[in-house]
């Protein structure tokens, strides 16, 4: 296996189960993922998935490759609006680990072609999404998308 392209870590004052729910429940992702509903069939292995929002429609589709609640979720990510992208599906993984009072959430995103436009877009997206997730779980207020 090649080394991951991106590794993001965020420490959140919440249990892994609470974070798992937030990541896999469309009603909750809608709040912190800037309107995106992460739809799956119970985040079960083999389930299809998509991120859908009222403003943007379907951002990406994919499939759950591995599901071990509330510790690990691995899924494929195929963007729907990257016209010049030659990327096949890339792979995202969430890993949750208790660290004292916090849970460490590690997100890795891998499988990009070198210099792909998707890779550049993704590198800007995750930090804000994770910051928003942390804010929602710790303060009840997710971040809002720029106008």
């Amino acid at each position: 296996m090649s080394d991951p392209a991106f590794v993001y870590v965020v420490y959140i004052r919440a249990t892994p189960a609470r974070i798992w729910d937030a990541l896999t429940d469309p009603d909750q992702t809608e709040k912190f993922w800037f309107g995106g509903r992460f739809k799956t069939d119970g985040a079960r292995k083999g389930s299809d998935l998509e991120l859908w929002s009222e403003q943007r429609g379907v951002d990406f589709t994919g499939q759950i490759l591995e599901s071990d609640p509330p510790k690990k979720l691995v899924w494929t990510f195929q963007h729907t609006r990257e016209p010049d992208s030659l990327d096949g599906a890339t792979t995202v993984s969430y890993e949750l680990e208790v660290m004292g009072d916090d849970t460490r959430l590690t997100v890795t995103h891998d499988g990009f072609l070198d210099n792909s436009s998707l890779r550049r877009g993704v590198s800007g997206g995750w930090p804000r999404i994770l910051s928003s997730l942390k804010s929602m779980l710790e303060t009840g207020a997710p971040l809002t998308r720029a106008a």
């Binding site: 993001y8 965020v10 804000r128 994770l130 910051s131 804010s135």
Partner: peptide
């Protein structure tokens, strides 16, 4: 590079 804390500062 983990830019999440920098995103938190910006936000």
């Amino acid at each position: 590079l983990n830019p999440v804390p920098i995103a938190e500062i910006a936000d």
